[in-house]
């Protein structure tokens, strides 16, 4: 773990709420160092009250996402060497969410929209004491599987241009979850998902910029999930299923 004194990172960190400002810190660079380690170093050694959020530290919980040099990222698994520009890091809270303090955002709107998009399972009529037989190659199961491994970190929501331009848009993560729910053959109200996402704030607002897919740390592609919802809602709408 070598570190030499001339190996220093110049770090700017957002302090305060929405009307805050950047403050400068100097942090010794290490061979193995993630952006979260840099933030931790500052809190432990330079600025005790620096507010930030993290939990699992290994890319599972999706708590530590921040804006690093202008891009939303999970910080626990972002190696400094991959993002530092000439030894500089600029770390800010996620965009498109209210800032609580420093690097911490309020994720409530994100999860409220998750519910609004009916991003949850509704039990079907099937027997409760057996497990549904669903072959992995089944078309719906494959679609659900492709979308399901979301860690709800908010990176896509923060990267989404449509959310930035109209804050009532449900956003990529919620719609991606809705697509997985719609493709769950065990679900008791699949049309309900389509009704939830076909409102004025729903899937049809997506302009296919693909910023969500570009930045998703676990390589999901919400744009394609949303495209699927667009097609499904279109079909259902033509058939008149959405107004029933």
């Amino acid at each position: 773990m070598s570190s030499s004194p001339d190996n220093l990172l110049q770090v700017k960190i957002w302090r305060g709420c929405a009307d805050g400002a950047y403050e400068d810190y100097v942090v010794p660079q290490q061979d193995n160092q993630t952006v979260l380690d840099v933030v931790t170093y500052i809190q432990r050694n330079l600025d005790a009250a620096l507010a930030y959020r993290f939990a699992c530290r290994v890319g599972v919980c999706g708590s530590c996402a921040m804006t690093v040099n202008g891009r939303p990222r999970w910080t626990c698994r972002t190696h400094v060497s991959r993002v530092a520009k000439n030894g500089m890091l600029e770390i800010a809270p996620l965009q498109n969410l209210p800032v609580i303090r420093d690097l911490v955002t309020d994720m409530t709107p994100f999860f409220e929209k998750w519910q609004e998009a009916r991003g949850r399972f509704v039990p079907g009529e099937g027997p409760k004491d057996t497990l549904a037989r669903v072959p992995p190659e089944q078309k719906e199961r494959a679609a659900a599987s492709a979308a399901i491994e979301c860690i709800n970190c908010g990176v896509c929501y923060s990267a989404c241009d449509v959310v930035a331009w109209r804050d009532d848009y449900l956003g990529p993560a919620a719609l991606n979850r809705a697509w997985a729910a719609y493709n769950d053959v065990r679900d008791g109200d699949r049309v309900g998902v389509l009704k939830a996402v076909s409102t004025g704030t729903g899937c049809n607002n997506c302009h296919t910029h693909q910023s969500c897919a570009e930045h998703c740390p676990v390589a999901l592609n919400p744009t394609f999930s949303i495209a699927g919802l667009k097609r499904a809602t279109l079909k259902a709408s033509v058939k008149g299923e959405l107004s029933k």
């Binding site: 497990l131 549904a132 669903v134 992995p136 089944q138 729910a181």
Partner: peptide, 15 residues
Amino acid sequence: ENEYGCYFDRNPDGT
């Protein structure tokens, strides 16, 4: 599985 929607991995025959 049936009430909360966890979708665990299946064998090729769907079990």
